[in-house]
Amino acid sequence: MDEPYTLNASKSIELPESVYSRVGDRVSHSPFDTPDEYVAFVLEEVLGRVEDASDLETANQVDQDEVETRLEALGYLE
C-alpha cells in the first residue's frame, strides 16, 4: 500500500477496549497514522470480501435455478 488510508466523512463506533488495544498495537507496524484509519481500511477489506462472496453465492444460486428450470422444461425434472 503506497498511501495511507484517509477518512472522508465519518461516524463513530464503539469497540471493546481489548480490540482497540490490539488495533493500537497493529497501527505501529502499519502505514496508518491512527487506529481509525487502520480500522476503516480493515473493515473495507473485510466487507469487500464478504460482499464478493455474497455476490458469488447469489450468482451460483441463479445459475442453479436456471439449470433446474431448463431441466424441468425438457422433462428431466418434475
Rank of each mutant, 00 (worst) to 15 (best):
L74R: 13
Y20I: 10
V19F: 07
E14M: 02
R49M: 07
D33A: 10
V42E: 05
E78A: 15
A9Q: 13
E57Y: 05
A53F: 05
E68V: 11
G75D: 13
E66N: 12
Y38Q: 01
E45M: 08
E3N: 05
S30F: 05
K11I: 02
R49D: 15
S28F: 12
E51L: 09
Y20G: 03
L71W: 01
L56W: 03
N60H: 11
Y76C: 11
R49P: 03
A40M: 05
Y5H: 11
G75W: 14
R49L: 06
R26W: 00
L7T: 03
T34D: 00
G24P: 04
H29K: 06
T69F: 14
P4E: 02
V62E: 12
N60I: 12
L71I: 13
S12L: 06
S54G: 08
I13H: 09
V62I: 11
G24I: 08
V67K: 09
S21G: 01
R22E: 01
L56V: 04
E78H: 11
E3L: 05
P16C: 04
D55Y: 04
P16K: 13
T34E: 00
H29S: 12
L15W: 00
E3R: 11
S30K: 07
T69E: 09
T34W: 00
Q64G: 04
T58L: 07
T6H: 12
Y5E: 08
E14A: 02
S54R: 11
F32R: 00
V50L: 12
V23Y: 03
E66S: 14
V50Q: 13
D36C: 02
E3M: 04
S10L: 01
V23M: 07
P16H: 11
V19P: 06
S12K: 10
M1H: 07
L7G: 03
V23T: 01
L43S: 13
V46K: 12
V19A: 03
V39S: 03
L74S: 01
S18D: 08
G24H: 01
G24M: 04
Q64P: 02
R26K: 09
Y20E: 09
L15N: 03
S18M: 14
P35V: 00
D65W: 15
M1T: 06
